[in-house]
Design a binder for these strands. Sequence first.
DNA 1: AAACAAATACCCCAAAAAGGGTATTGGTAA
DNA 2: TTACCAATACCCTTTTTGGGGTATTTGTTT
Lengths: 207, 207
Amino acid sequence: MINIIIADDHRIFIDGVKSLLDSQPDMKVVAIALNGNELLQVMKGTKADVILMDINMPELNGINATALIKKQYPETKVLVLSMYKTKEFSTALLHAGASGYLLKNTGLNELVNAIKMVHEGKKLLDDQLSTIKEKPRDESEKYTLSKRETEIIKLLAQGLTAPEIGEKIFISHYTVETHRKNLLNKLQLKNTAELIKYAAHLGLLDE
Amino acid sequence: MINIIIADDHRIFIDGVKSLLDSQPDMKVVAIALNGNELLQVMKGTKADVILMDINMPELNGINATALIKKQYPETKVLVLSMYKTKEFSTALLHAGASGYLLKNTGLNELVNAIKMVHEGKKLLDDQLSTIKEKPRDESEKYTLSKRETEIIKLLAQGLTAPEIGEKIFISHYTVETHRKNLLNKLQLKNTAELIKYAAHLGLLDE
DNA sequence: AAACAAATACCCCAAAAAGGGTATTGGTAA
DNA sequence: TTACCAATACCCTTTTTGGGGTATTTGTTT
């Protein structure tokens, strides 16, 4: 019996997937969480073998949540679901300790197989990502965003300019621009448009 | 008995929601479609009372698809689902003829109620959008994007600059900038960041 | 053929972003 | 206390974007 927690901010999705998985003979959804923080709370009282983690959640995003969970519960497997086929995330997630990464456009059979595979300790990448070239990378590199970085990326994603952001949160526009540059470097993105896209992936739009 | 078609590019979502709705005594999912074009094909052979439409689909997005469906099947009700709480969309969707707009973070009971309400002919807005001020608007205004506009927005969303896009599709960078300005005006957005966000909502990222 | 919308192209100027840095201070963990 | 990271702040220059237009051509529909 594989005990599963589903973490996703889309209630309909949770209810649907729960219904599907509970009808599998060897799987049981033991808890749900609507965001990363709630997931950490839930895990204090519930043992799970596999976390089905949406990357796209408010408050604590899937990447940061995965990193925290693997630190506190190293035996628990994290299978990440995303809408997007994006190479930045597969790398970031592998570094964070996820066991697998699957697109939401896959079907139930693949999902069930994926859960079983990561439960057995296998690493799993969605087939559609299998041709991604692994970037040469310094192991100390991190993808987790600081609080300020998260705040800045959110405000940029709202369409505010650096001067507007500086005025809003009472810092110099130079500082905002420095944060933006740091974000672009850290995440290996080439401009603000890619940064907004990344924010979309992290579920930071409309916050 | 309410006959329903689900249109969404996320197979897991479809399977899950289908499972949930098929267990309702007065509802039946009679078909599914993974994108707007497939939906139009499916509807040629299948009668449905309510379309459950994800706004976020490749090829033919939810707004354009809704407009086409209401023209060809005026009796069919369209209930749109989106991840995002965005005022641009509620307005665009009402103009396109949708009967309702619901966030994916609502639960099953709300979804079931919403389907029943739109089936009865009611207009439905998600509670969370109820405070949106209706913009004074010329009725002739349109939110549907031309092919070129869609192409430009996709390329911008990939992080390409206007000069890069011009070089890529063999037009002047001036033309690209004009398209961008036209898009911003048409969609009443204030800058490229908001345009990328809009592209995210339309599912145009990573295409 | 006429009308209209889409596509194309350009100009001007100001503001912002990008790309290259530099540096100091504050907060936290060891 | 020390070391390290995050946050803050600034400079310079070039490129791009945004905001204001202008105009012509092409394609489609009536």
